[in-house]
Design a protein around this nucleic acid. Structure first.
Length: 667
RNA sequence: GCCUCCUUAGCUCAGUGGUAGAGCACCCGCCUUGUAAGCGGAAGGUCCUCGGUUCAAUCCCGAGAGGGGGCUCCA
């Protein structure tokens, strides 16, 4: 048997080793259950892959992103096998790994119940123990069709192969059609199989029985189209170790604990009364303080940055949105019209034509009316119009979600009208301004997304799109942040940058958007007089920083887990007397703080002092000022901070200065 | 919009084919306290709404509303 050399790469190191035609990747780089697949010449392959002269082989650890994806992919096979064991009638859809887990879609008579999932999990554990090998087998299309004649969805996927099938489809995304057989470790019998491009872990024992969990089931359209049948999707998660799973589940609990809908109720910030309808929030006094503080700060910053404030009504005749093009493109997402002034005769014939009024879904057309209310000079540009503008959108019932997806919201919306020459500089400044301001609210981990033209849904010339896209890209690159392309993600009228922020537990949220628009100025015939006396069309930049105030509010609440920085806290200081004798003393301190516009209260209730601390703690008040005889004697107060730390006997002027300083610094 | 689950006191949730309960919160007393729950009492419900089955429905069935989880969508 002839020997040849292959290269093994482990991190920075590489070495040459001898191999033969029967050497597998696993023989060279396998390492217990820590290595699940190998990267061979750049492609991830099964460990059972035979090597050839000159191959470059690299182990892929189960703890790496790629390794975890393979583990999850194999786990979803295990789940599908278990489900077909239990219910042979279940037909298979697709089953890919996803972020933190996996899913598999099934066509079944009845949706899965939580009890079903428990049964499936148990069966998975049994299969796992059998140590079934995942064995790759190349098949011809005819063979695949014959074997999978009972799996209509798989057959459909085979039909797609070679067409414009997305390479994400695990089943047929490879260069050839393959089936993975699950082979019983002892008997060698093939007990299950699935059309799949792989790769997989060598055998089911690589899946840690204590490190996977079926999470939930939900319906999903076959191949993501609402025209297709609904399948039942089972979501699961799988990790390299029990600890990793535990860590993930803890993170989920943490996310649940931070849920802004829960915090909104617990902290008495806002609610969604049924009487108003889905997706319409009311802000309670405490939520109102937070919101107003957010808005006030934004106002000041915008004023300093050269924005002018405008106000526009919440409804309009249809003309405006016909002119802007919204009724053409987005009518479905608008509330239906109110028809006014229509008169009919006894036979129901129209005597007098009515007028349709619409609720405002976007502010821009109104701002355009302000722009063109008189002649504009180039000397006025860039003209920056800002409004906290309330808009209403008829979001489909299934998508409404807390404050992050609502039907009535307030955008911190501005439109910047500028010349073509000014566009580049304006975008660059704007992005800097936006990031700066977001940081002031406590978000500091960003990346950018550049959404470019959807070739099937756009208006405007190629040149305009190219110029705007280039300008946005340059502004984005100059920020130094990561820039992720989002091809086809732009609105019909122009490309956009969106700022994505990572919150305290690593989730990302789309925040600000900056959008270039050549179209609307044209549709609404905006003009300015240039230096040479000619009439020119301005370029319009749409930008929202919070996106919507409601959404930003929700994100901040989750980011801080309700413990907002002092400047945003609805109650900044609670005075807690040791006995009722100390109430007046604390009222005096609170009065001094209130004189500095600090939101200070004294808890003079009949509760015991421990209970008052508990209450203030539950309300996440940043500063608790406690006073008893000892403090009174010294003209001092004792701090208890939100994190449980305390600092006793602080002289009153010093305590006031500390609190005032924290609020001023927005910490 | 589609699939699925849920809806009982202000909140969190028990419970039953014969019109209902707990804890917390609220209100009233007592207690006067040193860093996360003192004690007692009172009050509080159209068991989401509308239909149907039944001698009888909060409970079973159907429709609707609101909410959750997904899918699709997100100017």
């Amino acid at each position: 048997m002839s020997e040849f050399m292959v290269t093994i790469i482990r991190g920075e190191l590489s070495e040459q080793v001898a191999a033969t035609s029967t050497t597998t990747a696993g023989d060279l780089v396998g390492d217990g259950k820590t290595v699940v697949v190998a990267r061979i010449n750049g492609l991830v392959k099964d460990l059972s892959t035979m090597l050839h002269a000159g191959d470059v082989v690299e182990p892929v650890l189960v703890t790496s992103d790629e390794g975890l994806a393979v583990l999850r992919h194999s786990t979803t096979h295990l789940m599908a096998q278990a489900i077909q064991d239990i219910n042979p009638q279940a037909r298979l859809g697709i089953g890919p790994p996803i972020k933190d887990g996996f899913y598999y879609d099934f066509d079944v008579e009845k949706p899965f119940t939580p009890e079903d999932l428990a049964t499936v999990e148990k069966r998975m554990g049994e299969i796992l123990k059998q140590g079934q090998r995942f064995q790759r087998r190349v098949v011809s299309e005819a063979e695949a069709r014959a074997e999978l004649k009972h799996e209509p969805y798989k057959l459909e996927l085979i039909g797609l192969k070679g067409g414009n099938v997305d390479s994400d489809v695990m089943e047929v995304g490879g260069a050839e059609l393959t089936i993975y057989d699950n082979v019983d470790g002892r008997t060698g019998d093939v007990v299950w199989g699935d059309l799949c491009r792989g790769p997989h872990v060598p055998n089911t024992r690589f899946i840690n029985a204590n490190a996977f969990k079926l999470m939930r089931s939900a319906a999903a359209y076959w191949r993501g189209s609402e025209k297709n049948p609904m399948l039942q999707r089972v979501y699961g998660t799988a990790w390299a170790s029990k600890d990793d799973l535990k860590h993930y589940l803890t993170m989920l609990e943490e996310a649940e604990r931070r849920d802004h809908r829960r915090l909104g109720a617990e902290l008495d910030l806002f609610s969604f009364p049924d009487e108003l309808g889905s997706g319409l929030a009311v802000f309670h006094p405490k939520g109102g303080i937070i919101r107003r503080t957010m808005e006030d700060y934004s106002r000041v910053r915008h004023e300093d940055a050269g924005y002018e404030f405008v106000y526009t009504p919440h409804i309009t005749k249809s003309n405006l949105f016909e002119a802007s093009g919204h009724l053409g493109f987005y009518k479905d997402a608008m509330f239906p019209p109110m028809r006014l002034d229509e008169e009919r005769d006894a036979d129901g014939n129209i005597k007098r034509q009515g007028v349709d009024y619409y609720l405002k879904p976007m502010n821009c057309p109104y701002h355009n009316l302000i722009f063109r209310s008189r002649g504009r000079s180039y000397r006025e540009l860039p003209l920056r119009l800002f409004e906290f503008g309330s808009v209403y959108r008829y979001e489909k019932s299934g998508v409404v979600h807390g404050l992050t997806r609502v039907r009535g919201m307030t955008q911190d919306d501005a439109h910047i009208y500028c010349t073509r020459d000014q566009m580049q500089g304006e975008l660059k400044n704007l992005l800097g301004f936006v990031l700066d301001l977001l940081r002031d609210y406590g978000l500091d981990d960003f990346y950018l997304e550049l959404s470019t033209r959807n070739d099937e849904k756009f208006v405007g010339s190629d040149e305009d799109w190219a110029q705007a896209t280039a300008a946005l890209e340059e502004a984005a690159l100059s920020s130094g942040l990561d820039l992720v392309p989002d091809p086809g993600g732009a609105a019909f009228y122009g490309p956009k940058i969106s700022v994505q922020a990572r919150d305290a537990i690593g989730r990302t949220w789309q925040m600000s958007t900056i959008q270039v628009d050549f179209q609307m100025p044209q549709r609404m015939e905006l003009e300015y007089t240039a230096a040479d006396g000619s009439h020119q069309r301005p370029i319009m930049i749409h930008r929202a920083l919070f996106g919507s105030v409601e959404r930003f509010f929700g994100v901040l609440l989750e980011h801080y887990a309700g413990a907002l920085p002092a400047w945003l806290s609805p109650v900044q200081v609670v005075g807690i007397p040791i006995t009722s004798e100390h109430v007046e003393y604390l009222r005096d301190v609170a009065g001094k703080l209130q004189g500095l516009r600090i939101r200070a209260e004294v808890d003079a209730s009949d509760d015991r002092m421990q209970k008052k601390i508990r209450n203030a703690q539950a309300q996440k008040v940043p500063f608790m000022l406690i006073a008893g005889d000892d403090d009174v004697a010294k003209g001092a107060v004792s701090f208890r901070y939100r994190n449980g730390e305390q600092r006793n006997g602080v002289p009153i002027p010093e305590a006031i200065a500390e609190i005032a300083e924290a609020v001023r610094n927005r910490t």
